[in-house]
Simulated assay, not measured.
Amino acid sequence: MPLRFARWTGCACALLIVAGCGGAVRVEPPVPEGAAAAACETLGERLPQRLDGADRGESTPASPYVAVWGEAEIALRCGVARPATMSATDQVPEINGVAWYPDPARPTLFTSVGREAYVEVTISRKHVPQNVLLDLAAPIKAALAQTG
Rank of each mutant, 00 (worst) to 15 (best):
M1R: 08
R4V: 14
W8N: 11
G10K: 09
C11Q: 07
C13Y: 02
C13L: 11
A14N: 08
A14H: 01
L15G: 15
L15E: 12
G23M: 00
A24Y: 00
A24P: 15
A24R: 11
V25N: 04
V25G: 00
E28W: 13
E28T: 13
E28N: 09
V31M: 05
P32K: 07
E33A: 12
E33M: 09
E33H: 08
G34Q: 08
A35H: 10
A36C: 02
A38D: 13
A39M: 00
C40G: 10
C40P: 05
E41V: 12
L43Y: 10
L43P: 08
G44M: 02
E45T: 14
E45M: 11
E45H: 10
Q49D: 12
Q49Y: 03
L51E: 03
L51A: 05
D52W: 02
G53E: 09
D55V: 07
G57M: 04
E58Y: 03
T60P: 00
T60L: 13
P61N: 04
A62V: 09
A62T: 06
A62R: 13
A62P: 11
A62H: 13
S63K: 10
S63L: 09
S63D: 08
Y65V: 00
V66I: 01
V66H: 02
G70E: 06
A72G: 15
E73M: 11
I74P: 00
A75D: 06
L76A: 05
R77L: 03
C78W: 03
C78I: 12
G79D: 08
V80R: 07
A81T: 06
R82A: 14
R82V: 07
P83C: 01
A84Y: 09
T85P: 01
M86Q: 13
T89H: 04
Q91R: 13
V92A: 11
P93R: 10
I95S: 05
I95P: 05
N96W: 03
A99I: 06
A99M: 11
W100S: 02
D103I: 04
A105I: 02
T108M: 04
T108H: 02
F110H: 10
F110N: 04
T111V: 14
T111L: 06
T111D: 06
S112I: 04
S112T: 15
S112R: 12
G114R: 05
R115E: 06
A117L: 06
A117R: 04
A117H: 00
V119L: 03
V119S: 01
E120S: 13
I123R: 00
S124P: 11
R125W: 06
R125I: 12
V128P: 02
V128H: 11
V128F: 10
V128L: 09
P129C: 06
P129K: 05
P129R: 03
P129V: 01
Q130M: 09
N131F: 01
V132I: 03
L133N: 03
L136P: 05
L136N: 01
I140A: 10
I140M: 14
K141N: 14
A142C: 03
A143V: 04
A143S: 15
A143H: 13
L144A: 09
A145H: 03
